[in-house]
Write a protein that binds this DNA or RNA. Structure first.
Lengths: 181, 181
DNA sequence: CCTAAATATATCAAAATGATATATCTGTGT
DNA sequence: ACACAGATATATCATTTTGATATATTTAGG
């Protein structure tokens, strides 16, 4: 059996709630989802075409004037495929943190470089954490349906782990400054 | 300027300390590094050939009997390239957590499925956390050089964040069980 | 002495990434 | 009325990564 293309599931998950264009899908992925998954035009558009031939989604032309616009709709087969994936036990969870990679190899550099890289990371995380907290507050005032609960849980995952990262940053910086070479 | 191939930096980082074969490199990457970065034969071997033509590394044939074996050694240019990368401010840090993706789309499934996916995640994390703690204990008894300090910091990053994940799992499971549909 | 596991290199299809090309529509300031 | 920046929208491409497989040799255990 061919390996499952994850972008397909992201798209099906989004189309489960509403009809969207490829461009809309990209915007949704760039929102809260981007904290734990990415997508690009380079895989969204091919996936849309492919899933249409596999009858998991249907397209309808909703062009306005000269502006081309193709809106996609999930089929029953598409909903089935999504549910099957949700029920599979396998889930691949991966970190790809270049900051940690650089830190690991900092023996080839200096304490100063290592500290600098951690400070950059800290800055990145603080910015993202602020954003997540805004999402969280908005959700708390508007937890009206099941989907909001799942959304809320992913946001709190982000907040909790980012807060742990920041605590680690403080510890790590202290160690790098104290333990004289 | 061509985009930087990250696998090159991983290999240079490893070769900075010792000469290695492609197979050795794969084994190193599959160790502690695998918690924050991955590598496969499919990009290790091509990278080795490419970096050799770019004079960042040198190869020497160390075959034993009929067994082919090519050992690589970092050059001064290679060391320079590694240091340059360490000194670049840019670092791409990405999470790719299929568990969170499934949780986010659990509206298409059920509370039961969502809970099941979190329990699977919890199991995965607990196993990995145990391993990280072993690494940590070994390091604490053997913190003799600068490299061990950097290694130790990446390991504590893993431990701290995984512990935060587990706390989140407990909270999330409670919410999913309490908040009746 | 057999065999399973580890060592070792290499390649390939499939998927993801990141950038770019092309064209249209919308809102803002002048 | 007009220019023009920015948002909307689809599409493609080279590069990189992933995951699997092919091939062959050596080592360790029963």
């Amino acid at each position: 059996m061919a390996r499952e293309k994850k972008i397909d599931m992201v798209i099906l998950g989004l189309l489960f709630h509403e009809d969207l264009t490829g461009y809309d899908i990209k915007k949704r992925i760039d929102g809260a989802i981007s904290f734990f998954w990415k997508g690009s035009f380079g895989n969204i558009y091919p996936s849309l075409k492919d899933m249409q031939t596999r009858k998991l989604i249907q397209s309808s032309d909703t062009s306005v004037g000269g502006r081309e616009k193709i809106t996609y709709h999930i089929t029953e087969e598409g909903k089935e495929a999504l549910k099957e994936w949700l029920n599979e036990d396998l889930a691949i969870n991966e970190l790809r943190y270049e900051t940690l990679l650089k830190l690991f190899f900092s023996g080839a550099g200096s304490r100063k470089t290592a500290l600098h890289n951690i400070e950059n990371f800290e800055k990145q995380i603080k910015t993202d954490l602020e954003l997540l907290k805004v999402y969280c507050k908005n959700l708390e005032n508007n937890m009206k349906n099941e989907d909001h609960l799942y959304y809320y849980l992913t946001v709190t995952f982000g907040i909790d782990s980012y807060e742990a990262y920041l605590k680690w940053c403080t510890k790590a910086k202290k160690m790098l400054r104290l333990e004289a070479r």
